[in-house]
């Protein structure tokens, strides 16, 4: 398995459009070393490649769909409470389009 080096993590972070401090990268590199070690142990078990990937712990389905009934919206003031900058009832950001 590929080593999660600082360079690999930096590239991944850049693709996800964020960055971290050197200390944070170093800590994450160490955490990944442990993780990859554990993965390698699992990898030694025979026949792992044939197992279907799982998303849910149990193979169950349900038939629950929500009826199309609308609720009352939360208040505008409440919705915008955490916004740093508001203009005309909308959240104002630095220009997104270049």
């Amino acid at each position: 398995m590929e080593k999660a080096s600082k360079e690999v993590l930096q590239l991944t972070a850049s693709k996800l459009m964020f960055d971290m401090t050197d200390e944070e990268y170093d800590r994450l590199v160490k955490e990944f070393e442990v993780l990859i070690k554990q993965m390698n142990i699992i990898g030694e078990i025979k026949g792992v490649d044939d197992a279907e990937p799982m998303t849910f712990p149990f193979d169950v389905t349900n038939s629950c769909l929500r009826e199309d009934v609308c609720s009352t919206s939360i208040k505008k003031e409440e919705a915008l409470k955490n916004a740093k900058d508001v203009k005309e009832g909308q959240i104002r950001l630095p220009r997104v389009l270049k």
Binding site: D68, V69, S73, I74, A79, L80
Partner: peptide, 23 residues
């Protein structure tokens, strides 16, 4: 539809911004 895909917030067009929403 009357409500949104994954929340029960109302679907109404042309209303004041940020007034047709759920958390």
């Amino acid at each position: 539809t009357k409500s949104k895909m994954f929340s029960s917030a109302p679907v109404t067009y042309g209303l004041e911004p940020n007034t047709q929403i759920e958390l």
